[in-house]
Design a binder for these strands. Structure first.
Length: 354
DNA sequence: AATTCGGGGGT
DNA sequence: ACCCCAGAATT
């Protein structure tokens, strides 16, 4: 049995050596760039994360530059990537590493897990990849590979199933080359053991794969359906006054925390179809333009919204947070989330307005 | 244990 | 439309 396990590891590591992608964070393997890439790649594809990684290394080449930066600048660098708590936690953790850990990432799992934004996956990834510590990573790729390898049919959304997979991962892990093994498992999931149409004929693990032997690779892993998304409907009001536009900062907590946006009025599907209700609330303002219907999909919300360009200032302060009147050129100085970036494009480019 | 956190790409 | 992606924090 032990020899089979060794053969499996050897096969996987050889495959990885010959087939791995050349990625910037794989060049030197310093903990800082490993940490940065791991956080950027949480729930994010390599292609989407790459430009952000380059920009971050350029602007924040080490933990000290990151620790000394303003959170708003880090959010600005992160804008468009989503899950902005990652950026806020990155900043918090950088300051803790600088002050409490003498500018080095703690070579200890418990201390690593105590840092903001460092969970079980990221702690194991950084410790194994940059310090060669024997912790198995379990991400979406590894979950898929192991559920097929061991023909685990239980719902991978269940914590109990995740525990079983973690145990398999820790057993499989090469204790001699934990970093390379972890990367190899993830790379296998990304390139060979894919969610749809896995490339089993070229898989280095196929001779040990129970799902392959039982022709169940298309059925595994099994994942139960997620809860349905909620629906939200917004009027987004763009106030224009002497070539300046009103924006505000979102609250400290919750969705898109501390990002900037135009004032928003929540409405319903019916009201969003016409401007009648809007004319009432905006009485006294001249409506210059109304956009077409826009949609934005969040993890748990389906948002539909329309922008309205009006002249003048609001009678009442929309929201309680910080507000600013900014010129067109100044939009780029603020971290603004994607849905409202689309409104800026509508404002600046789409002069027809539909 | 469930829910809340973005945004892009594939099928 | 639905799924997935080098997940973590909060409730």
């Amino acid at each position: 049995m032990t020899t089979q396990l060794s053969a499996l590891r050897r096969n996987l590591l050889n495959w990885f050596r010959q087939n791995k992608r050349e990625l910037p964070w794989r060049q030197k393997r310093h903990w800082y760039t490993t940490w940065l890439s791991e956080v950027i790649l949480q729930q994010t594809t390599v292609e989407q994360g790459l430009p952000y990684y380059h920009a971050f290394v350029e602007r924040f080449p080490n933990v000290h530059t990151l620790a000394e930066a303003e959170e708003q600048e880090i959010l600005h660098q992160w804008q468009g990537l989503g899950y902005y708590a990652r950026a806020r936690n990155l900043h918090k953790a950088a300051r803790q590493i600088a002050r409490q850990h003498h500018g080095r990432f703690p070579n200890d799992k418990k201390l690593a897990l105590a840092l903001p934004g460092i969970g079980p996956y990221t702690a194991a990834a950084i410790l194994s990849l940059s310090y060669n510590r024997p912790y198995a990573v379990v991400d979406g790729n590894v979950t898929r590979v192991i559920s097929r390898l061991q023909a685990i049919a239980e719902d991978i959304r269940l914590r109990s199933t995740q525990k079983i997979i973690e145990q398999h991962a820790q057993t499989l892990l090469s204790k001699k080359y934990p970093g390379a093994f972890n990367e190899a498992m993830m790379e296998l999931g990304a390139l060979v053991c894919t969610p749809v149409a896995p490339r089993c004929p070229v898989c280095p693990l196929s001779r040990w794969c129970l799902a392959y032997r039982q022709q169940k690779t298309d059925a595994l892993p099994f994942k139960s359906a997620p809860p349905p998304k909620k629906r939200q409907y917004h009027w987004v009001v763009v106030y224009e006054n002497t070539h300046r536009y009103l924006i505000r900062q979102r609250p400290e907590k919750g969705l898109l925390a501390r990002m900037w946006e135009f004032p928003v009025w929540e409405t319903d599907a019916r009201q969003l179809k016409n401007t009648d209700s809007l004319s009432v609330r905006l009485s006294g303002h001249r409506i210059s333009r109304v956009s077409g219907l826009m949609r934005h999909v969040y993890s748990h919300i389906n948002l539909q919204y329309r922008a309205v360009l009006v002249e003048g200032s609001p009678e009442e302060t929309p929201g309680t947070g910080t507000r600013k009147w900014v010129k067109k050129e100044e939009f780029n100085n603020y971290p603004i989330h994607k849905a409202h970036r689309h409104i800026i494009n509508w404002l600046l480019n789409d002069q027809k307005g539909r």
